[in-house]
């Protein structure tokens, strides 16, 4: 368990640090910043993240619904069902 925990902390750190440093590396404001462009660009970056994550989650759900429905030829009774308990 602790190995897993350490591993996940390492992975998290490896992803967070570059992201944060990237974000903070941007230069300070020029005189007339194009507010519209900055904000909409941020919006599209956020939407890219949201749609990628959404694609993964929605894809998983659709696949699960298709694969684990009881009418799927591959469906077999779960162990809990056979024991008749929950």
């Amino acid at each position: 368990m602790s190995k897993v925990f350490h591993l996940s902390i390492i992975i998290a750190t490896l992803t967070i640090i570059p992201m944060v440093s990237l974000a903070f590396a941007a230069e300070t404001a020029g005189e007339y910043l194009d507010r519209k462009a900055e904000i909409w660009n941020l919006f599209f970056r956020m939407m890219t993240v949201a749609f990628v994550v959404g694609g993964v989650i929605a894809g998983t759900m659709v696949w699960q619904v298709w694969r684990f429905r009881e009418s799927n030829p591959k469906a077999k009774p779960t162990p809990y069902e056979e024991k008749g308990e929950l």
Binding site: I57, T60, M61, Q64, V65, F68, R69, E70, A75, K76, P77, T78, E81
Partner: peptide, 12 residues
């Protein structure tokens, strides 16, 4: 939720 559905035999 997703992990509960995984490997189930889901009745819709």
């Amino acid at each position: 939720f997703l992990a509960t559905m995984w490997n189930g035999r889901i009745k819709f």
